[in-house]
């Protein structure tokens, strides 16, 4: 049995935050957050299967300001996790390990995921003519 008093891996607190480490932990955080999105998505589908009344309650919840805030967070998390996931796939085939490339792709992922999030929401509001 391991000695419980010794520091256990991963001991993140001993390191100074860097672009690479912050993006890495954000990938995890968005992944965990998206698991809750999957649960909400299931609730939405099941409410639709139950019928118009249950679906109306689900829609009212999602359309509230808090619902929209959560959905906006889910949208950003999805695009960030997706784009950074592609970055991970690049590393799996040994592409992009050099420090300058690593930083450049990291910044690109953040900018692109923000842009895709805002574009999606503009498209959605445009779709219902509220733009």
């Amino acid at each position: 049995m391991a000695d419980p008093t010794r520091p256990l891996s991963p001991h993140l607190t001993v390191y100074r935050p860097q672009v690479t480490s912050v993006l890495s932990i954000t990938h995890r955080a968005t992944g965990v957050f998206l698991a809750f999105a999957a649960v909400l998505f299931t609730y939405w589908l099941v409410s639709a299967a139950y019928g118009p009344e249950a679906f109306g309650r689900a829609q009212a919840l999602l359309e509230s300001w808090f619902g929209r805030l959560v959905l906006f967070g889910f949208t950003f998390s999805l695009f960030y996790h997706l784009l950074n996931g592609i970055r991970h796939l690049g590393w799996d085939v040994l592409w992009g390990f050099e420090m300058p490339t690593l930083r450049a792709t990291g910044v690109l992922v953040v900018i692109a995921s923000l842009a895709m999030t805002v574009t999606s929401w503009l498209m959605a509001y445009g779709h219902v003519g509220k733009l």
């Binding site: 639709a48 679906f55 796939l89 959605a124």
Partner: peptide, 24 residues
């Protein structure tokens, strides 16, 4: 699963955009 989820999740986001404001 990552590779499969790239097109699937993009399709899903696009679908939700087109479903915005839709009734039951």
């Amino acid at each position: 699963s990552t590779v499969a989820l790239i097109p699937l999740s993009l399709w899903f986001v696009y679908s939700l955009i087109t479903l915005t404001g839709s009734d039951y």
